[in-house]
């Protein structure tokens, strides 16, 4: 695939729009996170709500990386989505932006590992792996994961990987397949 190394104002608007569009879709799904928290709290697994919904939160990044195929698109897509979420009724205030930056770097790293040369399942597995590890490391501090037992940590890590793989991998691949088939992306 040929890649353009240059950003045009059209690409930037597109990335920001995608970020906000995804935010608008998830606005209606915030109750999922809260509902999961309510269900999981009595059995001591409240943080799992975070890991379960992690995949939904990072979707904008891999999708942007796959659509635009410009180095930095994965990071920027995720980061702009986080800024959008922060300004328009975000649940987490300023830490959204920090989380957005961490997630963006994590996703971008997966694309960097391929050298931006190929965009297939391996790319999605790589970006799933890097985002699982990096976001988990950030939660060790932010959400106090360091205090949990090792069994719980492994459980949370596995759940997070599955969630990111499903939403940021399978779903993103299905969406880009639809886009490829309709030939709307002029690359």
């Amino acid at each position: 695939m040929n890649q353009r190394a240059h950003w045009h104002v059209r690409d930037i608007i597109l990335l920001a729009l995608i970020g906000i569009l995804f935010g608008a879709i998830f606005l209606g799904t915030n109750f999922i996170y809260d509902g999961l928290t309510v269900v999981l709290t009595p059995i001591g697994l409240a943080p799992m709500a975070n890991d379960l919904s992690m995949g939904i939160w990072i979707m904008a990044g891999p999708l942007a990386g796959f659509m635009l195929r410009i180095p930095g698109a994965g990071f920027l897509g995720e980061f702009l989505a986080a800024i959008g979420e922060m300004f328009f009724g975000g649940q987490w205030g300023a830490s959204t932006m920090i989380s957005g930056a961490v997630q963006g770097i994590a996703i971008e790293l997966g694309f960097t590992l391929t050298g931006y040369r190929f965009y297939n399942w391996l790319t999605l597995v790589l970006s799933t792996t890097t985002s699982t590890i990096l976001t988990f490391g950030w939660d060790m501090f932010r959400n106090g994961y360091a205090a949990f037992s090792p069994q719980m940590l492994i459980l949370l890590l596995v759940v997070r990987f599955i969630s990111i793989f499903f939403f940021g991998g399978v779903l993103v691949k299905l969406i880009t397949n639809l886009l490829e088939r309709s030939h709307v992306l002029n690359r």
Binding site: T37, T41, L45, A46, P47, A49, N143, G144
Partner: peptide
């Protein structure tokens, strides 16, 4: 979420 973390 804060309560969930607290309880856990």
């Amino acid at each position: 979420p804060a309560l969930g973390l607290f309880v856990t």
